[in-house]
Structure formats: structure tokens, C-alpha cells
Write a protein that binds this DNA or RNA. Structure first.
Length: 676
RNA sequence: GGGCGCGUAGCUCAAACGGAUAGAGCAUCGGAUUUCUAAUCCGAGGGUUGCAGGUUCGAUUCCUGCCGCGCCUACCA
């Protein structure tokens, strides 16, 4: 609603200026929010117009104010030094629209979107870094769906890489386990924890004697070839760990639609299809000398095409139109700028596989996976997995118009290389709709590492954070964190509601724990490295998920005590807003108005989150709403309000804030307990 | 060496396109009419936004150069 008014205002201002100053090319009308509601609801800086209109900012403001005429939903405008036009929303107009919840729906863009997230190697338990990925990805999916977009959620499974090979080596050579023994271990709960430890031990074992690495090569070869004992064992292990990952993420209400696996990319020869096209288009070049002799290479993304001196720019430009300038002959890519795609032994690296996979995503490969049902969620939602020969009837995946890959910032270069390959294949459209949703890692504070019992070097102790390492078994497992959060929340609920049945307390504790965790992972902006610390993560006070949940619980209890069903209060609320006193109520309190204004912003914030791929804005919105509500709650007793009309107005306020909080929280994947 | 990113209060973080007095939470200290449950609220202290220049009506934000830190830079995935 906020955004709707904002756009209407911008359009009207622009129309006015165009009419008043015909033929002048105008800068964009920027609408911001004044630092204080007393100044107004929108602020338009007039400075950028001063030069093109050859007039002082204050004069332009004054002209707009007096001459623009009435705008539906806008109450008044004021001119503010040094050069702003401040605009007040018609409070009753907005409140009436909000109470009715009749947000004008913008036409959602068509075309299916594919969001890929999680993509955890299926060789060990998921850790907090994976949680950040999955929570960012899942929230982004919810944001897109809230905006009316159709989304497929994929979780890419690298089941044929060295990481899986390493645990297989661990089982077969380090522990010398039989297939039957492995099967027994798989059946035990939290098999992924067993692998976590084993994986760290294998890495240690390699370090002890480099000869042991031969085992890895052997196992890896077996896995890639397929149809043998080793591949079968690897598949058994990887599949079991994958199921654990799905269970872990399901605890957080994170679900997937499709799990494409690297084994099928291999066995269905996706790469061969892509390779042919890449060679044909001249994207890859064969090196016949130098360090990468015998390899097919690509130019590393971001490196300069021409390494001549800048003075020769003119020469470069004149050559660009000719065929000589297109494509890179081996000698044209400096060795350090080469990215090996196909090794000299003929095998393809992971970037190559990724290029093929992304051609499939956009429907540009000419091949498809086989599909099989894999996992049914408790809510009956079906998750599919790739196979070589699948079920006849299956949903259609791939062939989308837009993709988002939630992958941490360390993969930026590889992601750019894939995009560059698509572009050089001539698929600019696809390349333009390929977004690397990049975020920073979760690291541990030295204090947290020490708390977990890890020995730290003096150097590590002096750092502000330390990178987690699956290879060293250094990190916090996702399920462990969740267990601790639930236990901690449970203790609180137990002390607050001792009379409640234990199963109810458990349910509430779980909701609170998930709220705390999801909020924690979303409140940081993507670029910021999260220095993980149990003290912050386990906090339920201040800027946290439970704080926001608690605000809704308070709203609910007001309705409960008033014996009103909040869900069906909408018609009453919108009727109340029309009563004559509301104008006065909204005018006399900026504090209450601010609550209405903030409530109107949800869809605006959702748009912002999507176009900047930054879910943190939504967390900030939720916190601001909850904070304003708590202040309001303290200042305005509702049930004891003697003035009946005013009481109904206050109830309508609670109704709207509650609805928007629940809406925004649900986009974050957070539900609200009945009591706290 | 090259590429990307970061540096803001004691700590952890905000501040969309450059905008009005740089904001929160935590921690510390001091308070809140026994109420719609205090997982809350109010108040206080705490800042030369790493350093030095530049661009302009205006810079935490953009540019240049330093200083410090992180990540990437494999015929690993």
C-alpha cells in the first residue's frame, strides 16, 4: 500500500514538472522517508532538479505544493529547507485501505523461476554454514511466491565427488567395514554424525601417509564409472546422508521439489552434449603447449580480453568487428587467465559439469533427466530425484526463464565463468537471467571454538573469526544447534507454563527455536560474515525471532481476553475506520500513525528484498513492526479503554499490525506459538 | 602478484539510488502506576564512520592513494 502511494506520488510530480517545464530532460523523482514522522511520510529531495530547471530547490517545492492539485491518498505537502518537499499521507485513507487489506495487486511477471539452494555434499552432517544457505534460499523462495511467482526449488547433489569418495575410503579402508556393517550403521539415527567424524579421520589418515591418497583415486574412479561394488556402496552412503539432510531441513520447514544429482549429469552424458556445443561455438580452446598442454580451457571470468597496453585501445576496437577478434586462440589467453574445463586425461572438471547443468536449467541442452519420487514430506509434498531411467509420469523441471543460485561468495568466480560460457554460446537472455545469490560464510568466534573444545593456535585466538572446516570436523552441526535451541526454549516455556501438557510445551519450544534460528540467519546482510557465537544465537531477547513472535502473542491475547476472533475481525475493523472519530485518533498520535504506516510497507519491503536479493530487509521490517507495537502496547491500554469508539479503533490497529507481522514472519518461515 | 569483499559505539550489526540530528541489539548503570503475562517498556553513558586527499549544495555511501583483515586465484569438488 505504501509503495502504491509512493509510485502514484512520483508519477504525479513528474507529470506536473513535465507540464510546467516542457522540453526539459528531468532526473528521476526519488522518494525517501523523512528522518521523523513529524516531518511527513514521504520526502522528495529537490536538489537534482535545481540545475535542469534553473530554479532554487525551495522554489520548485513551493510550486509543486501549490499547483499540483489533489492526489487521492495524499493529505498535504510542506516545503522544508534546505530543499525538500515533504508529503503527508491521508491517514484515514491509508487506514481504511489497510483495514480492508485491499492491496492493489501488481501484475506478477510470468515465467517459472528456479531457485537452487543447500547443495550440501552428501558425505557428512549439515553445519551452520549450510543453515545460512538453506534459510536464505528458502526465504527467497517464499518471497518470490508471495510476489505471485511460480518457483521450483532444487538442491543439487554432488554424489560423485571426492568428498563422498573420502567417506567411502573411510568405511572400506580405514574401518574395513563390510556392506552389511555399513547398512547397519545407516539404519541408526544420525548416520550423518558418524560420517562427520569419519570424514575428519580420513583427512587425518591421508595426512599421515600420502600413499593413502591412492585409495581416494581408486574409489573416485569406481564411483565415476558406475555399475560396480564401490559405486553401489558410495550411493548407499550418499543417499542415506542426503535423507538426513532433508530431515534436518524439514525441521526448519525447508522443502525441495527436485534433487538433481551429479551421477546423472555424468551417466546421461550431459557434458558430452554441452561439450559439442561449446566446441562448435568456439567457447573452449585446446591448449597445445604450456602448463595446460592437452587441456580444453576457457578464459577465466573477469580477466581482460586483450593484454596489450592501454594505448592500443583504438587498434582493439577496430579489430572487434572482424572475425579475428572473436574467439580466443590458445596463444591469446595468458596462462594465468586460463580456466581448465577438460583435463589432459579427457575428464571434465566441475565447472564443465556446471555449464552443462545450467544449459539444462534453461532448456538449452537438448537432454533431460529421468525422474523418480524420492521423499515425501509429512505434509504430503513430494520431492523428486534424478535417475537414469525414471517414472513415466513426473512433473516438468528445468527449461525455466530465470534462475537464482544460492551459493556462498567463495564460488563467485566459478559462477561468473558459467554465466560467461552461456553468454559466449549466444544465450545472452539466459545469462542476463542468471543470478548468483552470493552471501558470506558463517565462521566461529574464537570463544565459540574454545567452548566446543577445539585447540586453537595463538594466531587463531587473535582473529575475530575462524572459518569452519568439514575436513577437520571443525564446526557446529545443524541438528546440534537446533537441539540446543529447543532445549533452551523448552526450559523457558517450562518455567512460564508449568501447568501445560509437556507435548504442547515441546511444540511451542520448537516454534520458538526455529523462529530464533531463522531470524538469526536472516538479520545479517548477505555480505557480512556471521561470526557465530552461542550467546547471540541462543538469545531470545532484543532483535530476535522470539521478540517478534511475542508481539503477535500479545496481540492474540488482547483478542482472546476481548473474546473476539482476530481472523474474522476484518469487516468490523474496516467499518470502524470509517467512523468520524478516527480522523482525530490518527491525527493526535504520531506513535499510533507510525504503526499504521509501518504496517503498510510489507509488500514494498518484499519487492525490495527480491530486487536486491536481500532478505535482511524483511527481518528489519519485522523487528521495526514488533518494536513499534510493543511501545504502543505499553502506552495504550485497550481492554480498559472507556471510550468505546476509541477502543474499537485501537483494536483495529492491533488487528492490522498482527496481520502484517504474521504475514511477514511467515515469509521468513516463522510461525507464532499460541502462548509464550 | 591479480580479482572480489570488508573496516561504523566496549561487542555484534543497520543506514535502498550520495540527503535532514549516523541508528538498533547485546553488555554496563538507573528506573517502570501488582496491567491486554516483564521473552516487554523508559532513561543514561558510549562515535573524528581505519588514514590522507578529491568530486559537490551535501560523503559512512562515489573516485584516487595508503594501512589492516578475509575470501578466491588447483589438470580438487
Amino acid at each position: 500500500m505504501y509503495h502504491f502511494l509512493q509510485e502514484r506520488l512520483a508519477r504525479r510530480v513528474l507529470e506536473y514538472l513535465e507540464r510546467r517545464y516542457p522540453g526539459v530532460s528531468l532526473p528521476q523523482v526519488v522518494i525517501e522517508q523523512p528522518p521523523n514522522v513529524r516531518l511527513g511520510d514521504f520526502a522528495i529531495p529537490m536538489f537534482p532538479f535545481a540545475k535542469p530547471l534553473r530554479s532554487a530547490p525551495l522554489k520548485i517545492s513551493e510550486a509543486i505544493r501549490t499547483e499540483i492539485g489533489a492526489i487521492d491518498g495524499i493529505a498535504e505537502m510542506t516545503v522544508a529547507p534546505p530543499g525538500y518537499l515533504n508529503v503527508r499521507i491521508d491517514r484515514v485513507w491509508l487506514a481504511a485501505a489497510l483495514a480492508k487489506d485491499d492491496e492493489p495487486q501488481a501484475q506478477a511477471a510470468s515465467g517459472k523461476i528456479l531457485v537452487e539452494h543447500s547443495s550440501i555434499n552428501p558425505n557428512k552432517a549439515a553445519h551452520i554454514g549450510h543453515l545460512r544457505n538453506a534459510i536464505l534460499g528458502d526465504t527467497f523462495v517464499r518471497l518470490l511466491r508471495n510476489a505471485g511467482r511460480e518457483v521450483d526449488v532444487q538442491n543439487y547433489i554432488d554424489n560423485t565427488g571426492v568428498q563422498v569418495a573420502d567417506v567411502v575410503v573411510g568405511f572400506l579402508h580405514l574401518e574395513k567395514k563390510s556392506s552389511a556393517e555399513i547398512a547397519t550403521l545407516i539404519a541408526k539415527p544420525r548416520f550423518d554424525y558418524y560420517c562427520w567424524d569419519l570424514y575428519a579421520r580420513v583427512s587425518q589418515w591421508y595426512a599421515e601417509d600420502k600413499q593413502h591418497l591412492r585409495m581416494r583415486a581408486e574409489v573416485l574412479h569406481g564411483i565415476e564409472a558406475g555399475n560396480n561394488e564401490i559405486a553401489a556402496t558410495a550411493d548407499l552412503i550418499a543417499t542415506a546422508v542426503l535423507r538426513r539432510h532433508l530431515e534436518t531441513m524439514d525441521r526448519l520447514d525447508i522443502e525441495y521439489d527436485f534433487l538433481p544429482r551429479e551421477s546423472e549429469i555424468l551417466h546421461l552424458h550431459f557434458w558430452q552434449a554441452a561439450f559439442a556445443k561449446l566446441k562448435e561455438a568456439g567457447v573452449l580452446t585446446f591448449e597445445d603447449e604450456g602448463k595446460n598442454k592437452g587441456c580444453w580451457v576457457m578464459r577465466r571470468a573477469g580477466t581482460a580480453k586483450v593484454n596489450d597496453s592501454p594505448g592500443k585501445l583504438d587498434d582493439v576496437l577496430t579489430h572487434m568487428g572482424t572475425s579475428e577478434g572473436l574467439g580466443d586462440r590458445p596463444s591469446e589467453i595468458a596462462e594465468e587467465d586460463q580456466k581448465v574445463i577438460v583435463r589432459s586425461n579427457g575428464t571434465v572438471g566441475y565447472v564443465g559439469k556446471d555449464i552443462a547443468y545450467h544449459m539444462w536449467k534453461f532448456g538449452l541442452l537438448g537432454r533431460d533427466f529421468g525422474y523418480r519420487r524420492f521423499y515425501r514430506y509429512p505434509n504430503q509434498h513430494e520431492c523428486w530425484i534424478s535417475t537414469t531411467d525414471g517414472e513415466k509420469n513426473h512433473p516438468h523441471f528445468g527449461g525455466v526463464t530465470e534462475i537464482y543460485n544460492v551459493i556462498d561468495a567463495r564460488q563467485s568466480e566459478a559462477q561468473s565463468t558459467v554465466i560467461e560460457a552461456l553468454r559466449e554460446l549466444g544465450h545472452d537472455e539466459a545469462a542476463d537471467h542468471y543470478t548468483h545469490f552470493s552471501y558470506e560464510m558463517v565462521a566461529l568466534t574464537p570463544r565459540c571454538a574454545a567452548e566446543l573444545g577445539y585447540e586453537l593456535s595463538a594466531e587463531d585466538r587473535s582473529r575475530s573469526y575462524i572459518e569452519v572446516s568439514g575436513r577437520k570436523g571443525f564446526g557446529v552441526k545443524a541438528d546440534d544447534l537446533l537441539d540446543r535451541l529447543i532445549a533452551s526454549a523448552k526450559a523457558e516455556v517450562d518455567s512460564r507454563h508449568p501447568q501445560m501438557p509437556d507435548s504442547d510445551r515441546q511444540t511451542i519450544a520448537t516454534q520458538i527455536a526455529i523462529g530464533a534460528l531463522r531470524y538469526f540467519m536472516l538479520k545479517y546482510t548477505k555480505q557480512s560474515v556471521i561470526a557465530f557465537d552461542f550467546k547471540d544465537a541462543l538469545s531470545f531477547e532484543g532483535e530476535t525471532g522470539p521478540y517478534a513472535q511475542y508481539a503477535v502473542v500479545r496481540a492474540n491475547s488482547i483478542f482472546r481476553k476481548a473474546e473476539i476472533d482476530p481472523e474474522s475481525y476484518a469487516t468490523t475493523a474496516s467499518r470502524e475506520i470509517k467512523s468520524s472519530n478516527v480522523t482525530q485518533y490518527l491525527a493526535e498520535s504520531d506513535e499510533i500513525w507510525e504503526l499504521w504506516q509501518a504496517s503498510s510497507k510489507t509488500s514494498y519491503v518484499v519487492d525490495q528484498c527480491i530486487c536486491t536479493t536481500e532478505p535482511a530487509y524483511l527481518a528489519k521490517h519485522v523487528f521495526q513492526l514488533a518494536q513499534l507495537f510493543n511501545t504502543f502496547y505499553h502506552h495504550h491500554p485497550i481492554l480498559t479503554e472507556p471510550d468505546e469508539a476509541r477502543k474499537k479503533f485501537l483494536l483495529a490497529t492491533v488487528f492490522v499490525v498482527r496481520r502484517e507481522l504474521i504475514r511477514a514472519l511467515s515469509i521468513m518461515g516463522i510461525t507464532v506459538p499460541p502462548v509464550m
